[in-house]
């Protein structure tokens, strides 16, 4: 399904800041013989939050993982179509996937700090990318933890294990870890589903503050969360052969008050799904 939307029309950001950051064109994704996504086309605007919603199994996470080629890790996964980051096709043998994943970071459903100190968790990425200077690393760690709204809570226990933090803190630590390598896009796959409501609202608040500088795509089961946090929203669903399709894509306020497609309406009002 082709849904052509001008990112200028759907973004709430100033026009000069809003460009197409990611572009997916006629995407078909297969896991072996099973088709997981069919003919998906959408443009993701920069410096905003795009939410992908839809029933379980509709291909939301598969869609998300296309943007930093995480699906490459799944045996038998095959992608047809074109995905571009800043106009450069990313499914191209010349693309350095490690560099791509640095630019397009990811936060997962379950907080997954490394079994090491808070400091080392955040410094891990920059170190891997060649930064050795302690002072520089300290600066990066502090900046990233501040951006992730975690600094004040952990500044006195940077040497403690990341696993000793609360669930919400662990998730913000994982976000800080992503921010430390200075990505441009952050993919979030159900980032709050393992968190309590207060921790959830903190992450949402953090997402809003990050949206000024980063392009964020979030997959969520929680429609209220998508409504609260995103600027644009995409609704996906499964066709009878279980392939995921994009049904509707547009400004969040419109999708949740006056969806254009009957299937979106039925899903968000709980008449199916």
């Amino acid at each position: 399904m082709n849904i052509n939307l001008d990112v200028q029309d759907i973004s709430t950001r100033p026009a000069e800041k809003c460009v197409t950051k990611l572009k997916a064109e006629n995407i078909n994704l297969y896991y072996g013989t099973f088709q997981a996504l069919r003919n998906v086309t959408l443009d993701i605007p920069s410096c905003s939050i795009t939410a992908i919603i839809g029933p379980s199994g509709c291909g939301k996470s598969s869609m998300l993982r296309l943007f930093n080629r995480m699906n490459d890790l799944i045996p038998g996964a095959r992608v047809e179509g074109n995905i571009e980051l800043d106009g450069i096709p990313i499914y191209n043998s010349k693309i350095d996937v490690v560099e791509l994943r640095k630019r397009v970071g990811m936060v997962f459903q379950k907080p997954n700090p490394f079994p090491m100190s808070v400091f080392e968790n955040v410094a891990f990425g920059p170190k891997r990318h060649g930064i050795k200077n302690r002072g520089e690393l300290e600066q990066i760690v502090e900046k990233s933890l501040r951006q992730a709204a975690l600094w004040d809570e952990v500044k006195d226990k940077l040497g403690q294990s990341g696993l000793a933090l609360s669930g919400g803190q662990q998730q913000r630590l994982c976000i800080a870890r992503v921010l430390a390598v200075e990505p441009e896009v952050i993919l979030m796959d159900e980032p709050c589903s393992a968190l309590d409501p207060v921790a959830t609202l903190k992450i949402e608040d953090l997402m809003r503050s990050l949206a000024a500088d980063y392009t964020i795509i979030i997959v969520t089961h929680n429609m209220q969360q998508a409504a609260r946090v995103s600027d644009t929203a995409a609704f996906m669903m499964m066709e009878p052969d279980r392939a995921g399709v994009l049904v509707e894509y547009g400004p969040t306020a419109q999708l949740f008050t006056n969806p254009k497609d009957k299937r979106t309406e039925d899903y968000i009002t709980g008449r199916f799904g």
């Binding site: 429609m223 409504a227 949740f256 008050t257 006056n258 969806p259 979106t264 309406e265 968000i268 009002t269």
Partner: peptide, 9 residues
């Protein structure tokens, strides 16, 4: 119930 779409309208 956090109504949406036509329910909200």
């Amino acid at each position: 119930q956090q109504p949406m779409a036509s329910d909200l309208r």
